[in-house]
Design a protein around this nucleic acid. Structure first.
Lengths: 326, 326
DNA sequence: ATAAGACTTGCATCCGTATGCAATCCGGCC
DNA sequence: GGCCGGATTGCATACGGATGCAAGTCTTAT
């Protein structure tokens, strides 16, 4: 490993290794001229601080674990890409953990702990509150992304206002003239599906309506496709997310021969790229992903900076994106 | 940071820290009884070796960098998920690097080097041969996934037989009766697009045909959509990959009113999930992703084990997956 | 001019694990 | 019973940087 070390560089310059180290730590006590000299020499000799050694010594790795469960839902790759970019910009590097369907993030935490990850961002994965508080125990941070804590936890979360989104879906269907609305639920143990349904029901109840409820059981195209068969005479359907909605749309149009939106209006949630394709033109509730990511980074920074305030639940508004399915 | 260290555990047991370390290194010299005792105590006290410290000392991090450029092409999330799982199973942890569109993997390597990543898997990203050999310099491994080395490199690669796949596409179109075939190319600097085109042209040439060639310029739905408008009177189109093909299909059907496959046959490459959806039923060439991943892991293992053989280019056959578009 | 400060720099040590080498132990065999 | 050799164990140190503390340098105010 011919890598240049801080010592090599120090010897080359006739200074101490400490100075090299300090030249690379913002805010350390180094004369500007010295820092410049060191940085220039580092450039020449190709020295770059060894992050591993640094992590060992500082007890901070600049690694952030991203826990993802549903990479097959196109919403998440998009999140992953943006989140990864944002983390990098914030000076972190992402360690990716994917959870097998139905698995819990609990299993992943020990591994992340071993890697001395500074923080975790949990998307679409459940976490027992036991491991959560264990995790938070020692200066580590954790943020739930697109999930809210179930039960009493000390976990921060960032999500869009799913309840409000559900309400908007209801209003849009009502305005379109629907009288027989239906809701297709996704995985039962997710706060997103719950909250969206809650808002939807509440708004409908205000008009004396109760939606037909169908359990898709899962957030997948196939589940949406199957669920659509149980729709009966519904004239408007709110799917818990877009991937379900696309499956539903295909079933409604190609298998059941129903015209959308004339006979059935369809609305989804997330705004995944495929929803915009001409074959679908899905009307949906857009999640403000970039803003959500900003908040996430903000929370991480604050927590790692020692912020001890009670857990925050950031809620960002969804917005109705009208296309052709409603 | 109350983490239990090897020393704590050693003190607790009245043995030396070395023994604890050895108890956790397979193949080390430890009496079976001693190892059992240590492992049991570790369990009780909640000791887990600190991977960071271990990496520093062994100069092996068990980290593998995954470099991805096109997470928006649904083929890659699927690859990522499987690759990540396979790496984990092989005892590695993935560090994810995403490259902005058009960026080069070169920029990512310094960072990966800093993290003492043992190996990199490069998907859909180009790498100059200079940085490649620099990288390979010191015991690190690198594998190109779904790409082949351009020019003389010492890089291993795993991909499917794109040339053969292109040939199969041509044969399928010919068998279907096409006389005016077209090829829609993706990003110009990718070996995949090149190779697929090469096989396609060669097979057509055998029948005295030359395909109309359209540059989509990019591997995206939108690019495919645009490209389709230039198709003119082609009666069969081979798109360089599925995401292009889906865009093309939508344009052909919804914008240009052409019936598929009767007026135009369409064939793609990759086998992404959306291709199977009823709205598309895209005929395509399936890449054997699980096998490709197996080979990738195999190569990494071999190289990290000190295998110094000349670079290998693993080629796995694509297979025609007939659906409704041809 | 001189002493109190404010900066800079170097020294020594720590972070937690791995590992070459020497010391020790044990069983078996003559 | 004593000696030999392999299996175990402990010691000491390396990995590459970070950082508290003391020493040294340069201002600046009196």
């Amino acid at each position: 490993m011919g890598a240049v070390t801080a010592r090599d560089l120090a010897r080359h310059l006739g200074v101490s290794q400490s100075m090299v180290s300090r030249a690379f730590s913002p805010g350390a006590s180094v004369a500007p001229a010295m820092r410049a000299r060191i940085l220039r020499a580092a450039e020449e000799l190709g020295y770059r601080p060894n992050v591993i050694a640094s992590a060992l010594s500082r007890r901070r790795s600049s690694l952030v674990g991203i826990v993802m469960a549903e990479l097959t839902n196109p919403f998440y790759p998009a999140v992953l890409e943006q989140l990864n970019a944002a983390l990098r910009e914030a000076g972190f590097q992402s360690l990716l953990i994917t959870i097998p369907p139905g698995g819990s993030a609990d299993d992943a935490l020990p591994m992340l702990r071993q890697y001395h990850v500074d923080a975790v961002v949990l998307t679409s994965a459940s976490l027992s509150s036991a491991s959560a508080s264990h995790w938070l125990g020692d200066g580590r941070a954790a943020v739930l992304f697109n999930r809210t804590a179930i039960g009493p936890t000390r976990l921060d979360s960032v999500a869009c206002d799913n309840v409000g989104g559900g309400r908007m879906a209801a209003e849009a269907l009502l305005a379109h003239g629907c009288r027989n609305p239906a809701f297709v639920a996704g995985r039962a143990d997710t706060s997103t599906s719950h909250d969206r349904e809650r808002g939807f029901r509440a708004a409908l109840a205000g008009h004396g309506l109760t939606p037909l409820r169908i359990e898709a059981g899962d957030f997948s195209y196939e589940a949406g496709h199957r669920a659509a068969r149980a729709l009966g005479g519904a004239d408007g359907v709110f799917f818990a997310n877009d991937i379900l909605a696309l499956g539903g749309l295909d079933a409604l149009r190609h298998e059941m021969g129903r015209r959308v939106p004339d006979e059935v209006a369809v609305i989804g949630f997330d705004d995944i790229p495929m929803g915009a394709w001409p074959a679908y033109r899905l009307t949906t509730l857009r999640q403000p992903v970039p803003e959500m990511i900003d908040r996430t980074i903000g929370l991480l920074r604050a927590r790692l900076g020692g912020d001890d305030a009670p857990p925050r639940a950031e809620r960002l508004p969804a917005s109705l994106l009208r296309r052709g399915s409603l």
